[in-house]
Design a binder for these strands. Structure first.
Lengths: 229, 229
DNA sequence: CAAACTTAGTGTAATTTTTACACTTAATTA
DNA sequence: TAATTAAGTGTAAAAATTACACTAAGTTTG
């Protein structure tokens, strides 16, 4: 083991942070800070690991350094290691600017997370010119193999979401059943039957009715629910 | 990217190959070839990757070099990267014998597979003194974090097995429903109701009755089935 | 050759889960 | 006060899951 804090040239982490804003699913992207302003390049927040930190630690550190975000539960989901994943000519400028050895073989360990967007306001630093939330259905070209990474993260997110039956933490403290349904529909990307969905959610008893109602909506106000502890 | 075939000092692959022998679940282990014969050390087949090969290619190459086995579908399931995963004093002799820099930080990408044991007869080479199938319920102490890797591979195996509803390829060409049930029971590690299991398997129509029967068994001979194409 | 042994093979009823489906209610706005 | 919008509600059919016990067809043993 290395006891120093040297940058390991061969291993990186990349973070796919999904953000939910009650309307759609977004992913946190950066615009790379490059000397030439000819072309703008977008990417996931990610960087090389240090020799004395675990992968999980690296993922959290890197996310924080680049976007300012912390306190996000990042889950490892896959390693990406094609020998030519960092050899697209379009990524050369970035590599030359920020890597000691731009030619080095780099394998990356990808992490994902899902958060409530309004709780996390990213601020760009390090080699990020900008950090922003981007609708997952309208992704720009991404550096390296990051498009592939996002797409596999999305698969994994859906899979885990179904299995874990969680997700209430992505809503306001008080929420309507309609909001939960919308959350499920957006993440799973399919329409659900209103009556059957309510039946199911209420049977699970993870959620409890309050005696409050929505206000200021131009229709019948919905009852508000909260997480049941 | 590196175009050479240098060994990458920081990234390895490890293979958890499960073998089924109609009776129990086994895992392929090696006994390390060490100068001192004081203590025997066991491990998963695994080694550092080359700079110009993909992770999948590395996993297949390494498995073949160490055990002689090829043609096995290895599936990546997780990266392991604790900074001290290679710093157990008991592993020092192995590292000193086979690694240019025994102190190097190494993260490993773990793969797993499930095969019919009788189709794969491993033969030790490289730094393996022996290669052998070991009952998963009776694992010896393993090098590095390999015990943890096996245990997580087992979880993943069970998860995927349930989801994919596959596994017939682990049986002889003609097999009885009892054999399938036993396979499921061993892999999932739980008992299943015979009538309900048969009902389910037959409904899926992945399997077709032949008009052959078992012979040479000391009880009512079972009908033989084959995979339905 | 009869008895003992072993696994194969079979059906039903109860329960739970999933699916499909349409109208009334309560608020806001025009 | 009429129009608009999403909330809220129940039932019946179908499908999937679960629990459960006896007879059948071979082999071996005495």
């Amino acid at each position: 083991m290395s006891l120093n804090t040297a940058i390991n040239p061969n291993v990186s982490v990349d973070c796919v942070v999904f953000g939910f804003d009650n309307e759609k699913l977004n992913v946190l992207l950066i615009q790379q800070k490059l000397p030439s302003t000819k072309e703008q390049r977008y990417a996931l927040p990610g960087d090389l690991i240090l020799d004395n930190e675990s992968l999980d630690t690296a993922a959290n550190r890197v996310l924080k350094e680049i976007s300012g975000l912390s306190g996000i539960f990042l889950k490892q989901f896959r390693a990406f290691g094609d020998p030519d994943r960092v050899s697209n000519i379009k990524d050369l400028e970035f590599l030359k600017s920020y890597r000691k050895n731009p030619q080095a073989r780099v394998i990356t360990i990808a992490y994902f997370a899902l958060v409530r967007m309004e709780n996390f306001k990213p601020e760009a630093s390090s080699f990020a010119e900008k950090v922003f939330w981007q609708d997952v259905t309208e992704l720009p070209d991404l550096s390296f193999d990051h498009t592939k990474i996002v797409s596999q993260a999305l698969e994994k997110l859906r899979h885990d979401f179904i299995r874990d039956k969680t997700g209430f933490e992505l809503l306001p403290e008080r929420f309507t059943l309609g909001q939960i349904q919308k959350l499920y529909e957006i993440i799973l990307n399919e329409n659900l039957d209103k009556r059957n969905f309510r039946k199911k959610i209420l049977k699970e008893e993870l959620v409890k009715a309050t005696n409050q109602k929505q206000t200021g909506v131009l229709h019948k106000p919905a009852r508000l629910y909260k997480i049941n502890n």
